[in-house]
Nucleic acid binder design. Structure first.
Lengths: 127, 127
DNA sequence: CAAACTGTATTAACTTGTTAATACACCGAA
DNA sequence: TTCGGTGTATTAACAAGTTAATACAGTTTG
């Protein structure tokens, strides 16, 4: 468990984001135990309440569940786990398209720029 | 001059956004006079300081210029005007790609979803 | 039982950023 | 000159959201 925090987004959002990424990449087993709030807070050097807020939202999203006062677990619902990745992509795409909607960019141009920047990006991270 | 404000983004940001969109769509002539801070504030029912903040940033971006205490004008630099559209697109694309970078989405899938959502979006706005 | 864990709730402190109030300086026209 | 416009600067008020402090309740284990 290790997160590189930026100081632009709220901590609890970044924590959620991190878990979503792990789920999207299939790093979690259904039902897998995750660190307790306090444990996570210790690991990440954040306040337990911040961890609590992140977990609470994840619980509302159906990504994790908690029984009694046991440490929380990743949901056992494989359909939910599977849909996380797709939803992340969909949300990003819709946000993106929305942001350029007002200036009427034709699809062909959108695709062209995306291709170009995708390549440029992957080249950056490889080298 | 008419802006539909949301109450999510700061007013001054939305004002800048509006001008950028107008520029990107070629609605402004180089050197064209724009409303004074107070005039704009009146029209949009916002505080003059909010208009000022927007204009100040646009000036820093080179989009407008001000001589003495004359009303500000759209820049005469056609290259700048022309690049606005491209930069808006580029920024959006990079933000987008960045947001999904961490979950390793192959280019083909990105393009596929963009196509699909683009169509869905334009259908929404037509009907 | 007591200690050490769990999750949870409530409230306060703090930060950050936006917006508003106000005043100043300049110029041009009546 | 005076008045009504311009742009500009400084400061205060306000709002919203995040983070922290603290306390409570339950369960398991030594």
């Amino acid at each position: 468990m290790n997160i590189k925090f930026n100081n632009r987004d709220p901590l609890y959002v970044q924590v959620i984001q991190h878990f979503k990424e792990q789920i999207a990449k299939g790093y979690f087993e259904p039902g897998q135990v995750i660190p307790s709030r306090r444990e996570l807070a210790n690991q990440l050097k954040i306040n337990p309440n911040t961890a609590q807020r992140a977990y609470k939202e994840m619980e509302e999203l159906g990504l994790i569940f908690t029984e009694g006062n046991m440490p929380s677990c990743i949901t056992k619902d494989k359909a939910v786990l599977k849909s996380v990745r797709e939803e992340m992509i969909t949300e990003s795409v819709e946000l993106f398209l929305n942001s350029i909607k007002s200036i009427n960019v034709p699809l062909s141009e959108v695709l062209e720029v995306v291709k170009k920047k995708y390549d440029a990006n992957s080249r950056e991270t490889e080298e």
